[in-house]
Design a protein around this nucleic acid. Structure first.
Lengths: 143, 143
DNA sequence: TCGCGATTTAGAATTATTCTAAATCCACTT
DNA sequence: AAGTGGATTTAGAATAATTCTAAATCGCGA
């Protein structure tokens, strides 16, 4: 089929793409494109902002990482690519991954009700993270 | 209680705010701010774009309408303010409201799992609407 | 009528993201 | 070893959505 090293699905995992992927994989948090750019520059000082976006698009399309959007905030990128749910804190902005088996069965119910042919389902819990619900009026760091 | 006409929660339902509210309420679809601006101009020719945004924020905060965000697309506004779910078509962009009772019980499960203090839950089904799943390769009008 | 807080307005500013066009890179040929 | 072509990267401009700013305007109560 193909050479077996560089090209497979539709493109190569270039050094820039590897750097972006590594940044996302090595972060505990869900970074924005801007944060990824800053960190990727430490690995590849000449990388450009556009390349970060290009790479993120490529990595998303090839299923190597996921994108999370919520509200009008900047997208965040997720090293976890299996389907899963999110919780977002209204006070500090923390974003947590978790997985509920029930969500998938809800997808079927939603498909039946809406008459849509289902492709995926997005569930986001909005509330206060443990830290913020302890200190009732904590420093709400805007992110 | 209060004067009974203009001010209640924290502000007045000015003609501009009324116009924006009316536009959203009278549309079957979920409009974007730009679409709302265009239609509101027909009611109040001098209304400004900023006022549409200001009004939308006000109406959202006072619970008179809802905002829907998905992906990196522009926000859409929803006359339905009770909690409900959404389905979005990947081919034509159609956005549908529906309501599943199970979503609320999922909120409790999600809260338990994530340890967040729940405030609300957002469920979005992504897939093909009935029209688009009929004609397999239909004219995917970008919205 | 005056004064005042709330609201509106026009346009500038900001933020996130995408686009453009020119350079670079690399594997493959010659 | 030079030449080609496609994919990728780069810098910066462009676009799109939304928010901000500062100056008018509105409407009510003193």
């Amino acid at each position: 089929m193909d050479s077996g090293k560089e090209k497979e699905g539709g493109g190569a995992l270039t050094p820039q793409r590897q750097a972006v992927l590594r940044v996302v994989r090595e972060s505990e948090e869900h970074l924005t494109a801007a944060e990824i750019f800053t960190r990727a520059q430490k690995l590849l000082p000449k990388i450009s902002y556009a390349t970060v976006y290009n790479s993120l698009r490529y990595l998303k399309e090839t299923g190597l990482l996921g994108e999370i959007t919520f509200g009008n905030a900047a997208s965040r990128y997720d090293r976890e690519t299996a389907r899963h749910d999110h919780a977002i804190c209204t006070a500090c902005g923390k974003l947590l991954d978790f997985d509920l088996a029930e969500t998938v069965s809800l997808m079927k119910a939603a498909a039946r009700r809406s008459r849509f042919k289902p492709e995926s389902i997005h569930l986001t819990l909005v509330g206060l993270c443990p830290d913020c619900s302890d200190k009732p009026d904590g420093k709400r760091r805007k992110r």
